[in-house]
């Protein structure tokens, strides 16, 4: 394989110079970013755009509201899932408090993904057999109806990927207007986490005769609860 120095110096010579040692200047560009004139509308707009993509969503203020919304969405299904598979509802190690208490109230037991099995392959297979994956989120983007999650030791990337349903909780304070704000905050973290997943709606494809079809690989149903306390 080509040695890196040779590879780079050959590129430099193609550019008519020797390998640069100082960084190039910052690129001068300006784009008018999407900004909400009324930040109070951010949750509503985020939700609207999320729903346009085929997701379900709601804004809640209290635990009661959370409980009744979960009941409305899933009914008694979770209880029957659990009967067949105790790990049918898979979650990150910790979720926002309001979410945790809501699930206790409902008596829907959450299996914690990272502790589900010691071997990664086993974990993946558990996640693939789960009915619902539950995560928090680090940011949301109003303009595109996107939720953004950072990977970490307590989270697991498969939770929002392998189960046929994904439910995310996001605090309203984590919503931003546009992608650039999120990326700016990612930059400020210094070293980014090993994976940042930006999710805008369910898995979709139009590969067969341009006919839109949902859920070819990733979640088929996606839900978001915006916590605005």
């Amino acid at each position: 394989m080509t040695n890196a120095n040779d590879f780079i110096s050959q590129l430099a010579s193609k550019l008519g110079r020797s390998t640069p040692t100082v960084p190039p200047p910052l690129i001068d560009f300006h784009v008018p970013q999407y900004r909400l004139s009324n930040p109070g509308e951010r949750s509503t707009i985020f939700l609207h755009n999320w729903q346009e993509l085929g997701g379900k969503g709601v804004i809640v203020k209290t635990e009661d509201q959370t409980v009744s919304c979960l009941k409305e969405w899933f009914g008694d299904l979770p209880l029957s899932w659990i009967k067949d598979n105790p790990q049918a509802i898979l979650a990150w190690d910790s979720l926002p408090t309001l979410a945790e208490t809501a699930f206790s109230t409902l008596n829907w037991p959450l299996a914690r993904y990272t502790m589900a099995a010691p071997d990664p392959r086993e974990r993946y297979s558990i996640a693939a057999q789960a009915e619902l994956g539950i995560t928090g989120a680090d940011w949301g983007i109003a303009l595109s109806g996107t939720i953004v999650t950072n990977s970490s030791a307590q989270r697991g990337r498969a939770v929002s990927l392998l189960p046929p349903r994904h439910l995310a909780f996001i605090e309203a304070s984590k919503l931003r207007d546009n992608l650039s704000e999120v990326l700016e905050e990612v930059s400020a973290l210094g070293s980014p986490p090993s994976a940042i997943e930006m999710i805008s709606g369910p898995s979709r494809t139009s590969d067969i005769e341009m006919d839109l079809s949902i859920g070819v690989h990733g979640p088929i149903e996606v839900y978001v609860i915006v916590i605005d306390t």
Binding site: A195, I196, S200, S203
Partner: peptide, 22 residues
Amino acid sequence: GQRLSSYTTILTPPRQSTESDG
């Protein structure tokens, strides 16, 4: 014609030793 694709993944690999996936 999407505002963002359904999935935009930013990987800064590999996974860290404590992480469960990746």
